[in-house]
Write a protein that binds this DNA or RNA. Structure first.
Lengths: 134, 134
DNA sequence: GCAACGCATCGACGATCTTCGATCTGAAGT
DNA sequence: ACTTCAGATCGAAGATCGTCGATGCGTTGC
């Protein structure tokens, strides 16, 4: 979901460059520096935060890593429950969060449920970070 | 802190490729596919998760964006408290979390505290994500 | 010295999250 | 049909988080 777009680029009409507020405010003037670019709007920020929150738990990072480390890039729950040392319901819970975040895909084949990393999902997040740092 | 390193590359001694476990398990065999690469160890995963958790809150994403949008890439608390619509203690709390995560830097100049984005910090996280997706 | 200002810190409260055991749902297998 | 197995879902307990008002600390100005 989500079409995460972080708009940082469009320059906001550069306000009158009369007062140079960069070099501190010596006496009484305001501390505030003018805004040069447009900040991310609340909706985009919430969207981004939702994705990062899914990666904000050590167990989920490990699950993602373990899935990616498996041959074919997929693994079932029984492959994951032991390496992380948590109960099966807990692992299922974390996997659901990663699926909801669009980072993992779930496919049921017979008795087992196979999880795989959604191609490009991590790259997309990484690109957003690099772009935001510009 | 942190020297976050996510080791996903070093191929673990490819186990005997006798049984092809990729194409499901038709009858009784185990569902498990072998591990091809080494997964991130718990310490690295916790380190990564700590950074992502700092970005896992909408307010903090906005703060980071607003700071970056200011001229000179820095802003004081009084610049941030109004755009996010939260109390000053709350904003200070979020800023501290971002500083602890190594994403923001704090510099006190006279009466005001100026926050700026740590150069390369977001790029580093983004690069780790792209690498992990390989 | 004293008041005003910017900001950090300190509890405190409610909300959310992580984890578990217990239970439910489907798919194989006998 | 009944049992078995993989996995999801369901409360519940405990921990963590986000937010606030109140307060403390350092700097600036009178």
């Amino acid at each position: 979901m989500t079409t995460i777009v972080l708009e940082l680029s469009p320059a906001v009409s550069t306000p009158d460059p009369t007062s140079d507020a960069t070099s501190a405010a010596p006496t009484s003037g305001a501390c505030c520096a003018p805004i040069v670019r447009e900040a991310a709007d609340p909706a985009a920020a919430a969207d981004l935060a939702r994705s990062f929150k899914a990666l904000g738990d050590p167990t989920r990072v490990r699950l993602l890593s373990i899935v990616a480390a498996h041959e074919g890039g997929e693994a079932c729950v029984c492959d994951l429950t032991e390496p992380v040392g948590l109960s099966q319901p807990t692992v299922s819970h974390h996997l659901k969060i990663l699926v909801d975040a669009g980072l993992l895909a779930r496919e049921q084949r017979g008795k087992w449920a196979y999880y795989s990393v959604v191609p490009g999902s991590l790259d997309r997040l990484g690109a957003l970070l690099s772009e935001a740092a510009r």
